[in-house]
């Protein structure tokens, strides 16, 4: 039987652009997740998401694995990029689109 940590590692490994968020992109359940997903959608590439409100085990385990206490969390090519503030700042500076386009192309 696989553990929650195995599940998390598998998700991060298999999805080059992955957002852990509260709610889903159509109906975010938190202002920070909403801002993050809007910035990500504006990059116009496919991405995966996990609704942590539906996955309490992941919600409990991921912060320890990530050394990051809150959600949302954006992971690109196996690395934590950051939460809402970082995503927004990178979006505004144009870095996010570059990072996401590169990840989608690879």
């Amino acid at each position: 039987m696989s553990t929650t940590l195995d599940t998390i590692k598998e998700q991060i490994e298999n999805n080059p652009i992955l957002l852990y968020m509260k709610g889903n992109p159509q109906m975010p359940q938190c202002g920070f997740s909403s801002q993050a997903v809007q910035a990500l959608m504006a990059c116009e590439e496919k991405f995966a998401f996990v609704n942590i409100l539906d996955n309490p085990d992941i919600r409990a385990e991921l912060p320890k694995y990530a050394n990051w206490p809150t959600f949302p969390q954006l992971w690109v090519k196996g690395e934590l990029v950051g939460g809402c503030d970082i995503i927004i700042e990178m979006y505004q500076s144009g870095e996010l689109k570059k990072l996401i386009s590169e990840a989608a192309a690879s």
Binding site: Q29, C30, G31, S34, I88
Partner: peptide, 13 residues
């Protein structure tokens, strides 16, 4: 500094 967003009610979950 950028402004923070308002709540969308996720804590009801």
């Amino acid at each position: 500094v950028p402004a923070s967003p308002n709540c969308l009610g996720g804590s009801k979950h």
